[in-house]
Simulated scan of single mutants.
Amino acid sequence: MALKDVAVLLVEDDPVFRQVVASFLCSRGASVCEAADGEQGLSKFSQQRFDVVLADLSMPVMGGLDMLKAMSGLDARVPSIVISGNNVMADVVEALRLGASDYLVKPIPDLYIIEQAINQCLAEVTHTDPVLSQLEELSYQELNDNLALLEQNAQAAKSVQQQLFPASNISYPHAKIDYSLFKDNDISAYFIDSTMVGSEHLILYMAHFHPEDNRAAFGCVLLRSFVNQKLKLFRNGLSKTIIEPFNMLSYLNERMVKSGLDIYVDIIYISIELTKFRAGIAQAGQGLRCYLRNNEGLSPLALPESLQLGILDWGKPSIQFRTLMPGEQLCIATHDPLHKRLLLQNQFKGLVYDVNIPAGGFIQLRL
């Protein structure tokens, strides 16, 4: 059977729904332990070992969020799947931030959806490489250290963000990147970054964070930390996600949602295969635009509309592949006409404080 010998802790206050789900899971081979509220669930969790926890979020005595937080303190290795009504999606976001593997929304039209969710999260646990876990733990420690610093005061946020911005001109083997970002207060709502990935790929991205306040500094740290995590995995031969724009934006959206910081991001993410002059371009949100630049000016690339990062029911990024011709540059810019004029004038100055220029800017890749 599909769930043979899988030990499930089912925590649900609705006795009818709990019985229906328990009967189904047992019929599929699982061993099910039932609890009527979070307090009972936590008690049973502390007394025996389970392969997965399936829990409602809205329960009396102890709610699902408090229960999951307490369970994480006892054994964070056990995956959990949360069940929610449509009216408590904010709790789902918090549950994902606490480490829940997946979520299901009531009413559940087909109980096999639950079986599929259980199998998927168990597969992720089974195939977790110990080296991968160690690297993820290191990355999250770096992230937590940075976020703790940002929480101290606005000056710390400004200082950390400024350290993340590169020089205005960055030279790589076979490529050069130039940019200007203009800000009109201490914190920039825009961020750019780039790095070599191995010897054959270069990635670059530009992001615009919402809301445009101190949380943008949090957003920069989050984004850089998540990208660095995938970069480490690539260098250790464990993942190619960082050079796959579609998968990278999907991953970044998942991590932004789980951060629980209510930050939304317009982003264009580009991966260049340097030996073939081939670019993969993925976009989320509509606040930025990608252009090809040549002697005739800027030509916008037609990318379909897509949602910003940070949205739970996100969908998919828009994506395009392009082979750059001799003399072509690849650019990302905000929609402001002044920024595009400055780009065409090659006004590359890095991060600039200027109240007379609208916030935003541009980045250019030249091979």
Score class of each variant (00 low, 15 high):
residue 207 A to V: 07
residue 74 L to S: 04
residue 166 P to E: 08
residue 257 V to S: 08
residue 284 A to V: 06
residue 72 S to P: 00
residue 98 L to G: 02
residue 116 Q to L: 09
residue 183 K to F: 05
residue 252 L to P: 03
residue 237 G to N: 11
residue 253 N to L: 03
residue 359 A to C: 14
residue 100 A to C: 09
residue 48 Q to A: 15
residue 128 T to V: 09
residue 125 V to E: 11
residue 159 S to E: 11
residue 344 L to D: 05
residue 228 N to S: 12
residue 15 P to A: 01
residue 239 S to G: 06
residue 191 F to Y: 15
residue 294 N to V: 04
residue 162 Q to P: 00
residue 322 R to G: 02
residue 287 G to E: 01
residue 308 Q to M: 14
residue 298 L to G: 08
residue 312 L to D: 03
residue 236 N to C: 10
residue 303 L to A: 10
residue 9 L to N: 01
residue 181 L to R: 01
residue 198 G to N: 09
residue 240 K to Y: 10
residue 125 V to P: 00
residue 150 L to I: 05
residue 10 L to I: 04
residue 91 D to C: 07
residue 283 Q to N: 04
residue 113 I to S: 05
residue 134 Q to I: 00
residue 191 F to Q: 11
residue 296 E to W: 10
residue 162 Q to R: 12
residue 231 L to Q: 14
residue 18 R to T: 04
residue 159 S to T: 12
residue 309 L to G: 09
residue 6 V to S: 04
residue 36 A to K: 08
residue 296 E to F: 14
residue 160 V to T: 11
residue 171 S to A: 14
residue 205 Y to F: 13
residue 251 Y to D: 02
residue 245 P to E: 05
residue 159 S to F: 12
residue 52 V to N: 05
residue 172 Y to I: 03
residue 164 L to M: 09
residue 266 D to A: 08
residue 292 L to K: 09
residue 340 K to D: 04
residue 185 N to V: 00
residue 272 I to N: 04
residue 61 V to F: 00
residue 273 E to Q: 15
residue 260 G to Q: 08
residue 218 F to D: 10
residue 191 F to M: 12
residue 211 P to E: 03
residue 239 S to W: 06
residue 338 L to Q: 14
residue 29 G to K: 06
residue 168 S to L: 02
residue 19 Q to E: 12
residue 309 L to D: 05
residue 311 I to S: 02
residue 99 G to R: 08
residue 28 R to P: 00
residue 349 K to A: 10
residue 218 F to M: 00
residue 113 I to V: 11
residue 143 L to M: 09
residue 170 I to R: 06
residue 184 D to S: 13
residue 118 I to P: 02
residue 193 D to N: 15
residue 183 K to C: 06
residue 10 L to D: 05
residue 182 F to K: 01
residue 293 R to F: 02
residue 265 V to N: 08
residue 267 I to P: 00
residue 249 L to R: 04
residue 367 L to C: 13
residue 357 I to H: 12
residue 16 V to G: 03
residue 224 R to P: 06
residue 284 A to H: 01
residue 320 Q to K: 04
residue 15 P to I: 02
residue 253 N to Q: 03
residue 11 V to Y: 03
residue 229 Q to V: 02
residue 340 K to V: 05
residue 254 E to M: 12
residue 200 E to T: 09
residue 281 I to W: 00
residue 74 L to A: 06
residue 187 I to Q: 12
residue 292 L to Y: 08
residue 44 K to H: 13
residue 117 A to M: 01
residue 157 A to S: 14
residue 308 Q to V: 12
residue 41 G to T: 04
residue 193 D to G: 15
residue 36 A to I: 04
residue 314 W to Y: 14
residue 44 K to C: 11
residue 52 V to P: 03
residue 187 I to C: 10
residue 44 K to M: 11
residue 218 F to I: 06
residue 115 E to M: 14
residue 355 V to N: 11
residue 27 S to Y: 07
residue 176 K to Q: 13
residue 192 I to R: 00
residue 366 R to F: 10
residue 50 F to I: 02
residue 332 I to D: 06
residue 7 A to N: 10
residue 124 E to T: 13
residue 46 S to H: 14
residue 301 L to C: 05
residue 42 L to P: 07
residue 334 T to L: 03
residue 11 V to K: 06
residue 21 V to C: 08
residue 319 I to C: 13
residue 301 L to T: 00
residue 69 K to T: 01
residue 307 L to I: 07
residue 325 M to A: 13
residue 34 E to M: 12
residue 145 D to N: 10
